[in-house]
Amino acid sequence: MTDRVALAERLRRHFPWITLTTLTILVGFTDVNFLRPDNLLNLAADIVPLLIMAIGMTLVIYIGSIDLSSQSIANMATVLATIALPSAGVGAGVLVLAVGLAFGAVSGVVTTRLKVPSFISTLAVGGIALSVGQFASGQQALHMDAGQRLHAFGWMVGRTAGIPHELVVALLLVVVAWFIQGRMTAGRTFKAIGAGEPVAVSSGIRVERYKILAFALSGMFAAAAGLVFSVKLSGGSPTLAEGFLLPAIVAVLVGGTPLTGGVGGVINTVIGTMIVAVIRASMLYLNIPAMGQQIFFGLVLIVAIATTIDRSKMRIVK
């Protein structure tokens, strides 16, 4: 009896990637071409900006909050990167990341010091980021000069041995986030905050600082997502990253990091993002008509969440 419980418990941790593999194989059945390595690589490369944003989002959800500013910060980042490219070159990237970090930090300060729920504070800070993006761009799409783009960020695009460079960039960022989460005091503190904030407080941890840090990192990752996206599309606009926010949140949750925080993490989100990508791609292979794709996405999402999330520790499901 107890053995079976323990087994189920252990299995549960693996549900996200089991779901991913099952989905992949299912789609593979309908069209073997889907499983070709170059196809899977392309699939992965396509979701790089989403993945980067979702990774940042993970850190915030890991502490039991939420970040609704990511998409707006990414939008702003595409604009700022495009504007700064001619004068700053690679520095444009650094600038954009710093701005993202600052915006995230503001969300964190508003949430912790003013005690405004993160749902509202990040939404509001997202509004500010949107305004900055619209103001800076003059509300129109901007384009990067091809030469300058190649010079400053050429390393981000292109392939080596068939592997897209942006995928390498994304994996590097994943490793960084994973290292922060698993090996650094900050990550341990995030976990403690998610698992039980009062414990962290009464252990003498300066919880507010770490929460601000989580929001700041999320802002930075969102900016990085925007940067990669703008380089990829060779331009920027205050609406370029539209439609990223909900899939990013979905990716985190499907991966197995619950909104209450404390469990799951970066690797879960990598899997979650891939689940989202496979679901999306599968619609092409399953010949789901364009009109029905949203419904399909919503339904598969419910199934995916129902199978991946760990309810064993949830006494109350809100």
Binding site: L253, M291, Q293, I295, F297, I302, I305, A306, M314, V317
Partner: peptide, 20 residues
């Protein structure tokens, strides 16, 4: 019934509704 947090359940239903 499926014990899915309302945030996720309703978000997914939102997608379904838009699609519908």
């Amino acid at each position: 019934r499926l014990r899915i947090p309302s945030f996720m359940a309703s978000l997914s239903m939102g997608f379904v509704g838009v699609g519908l």
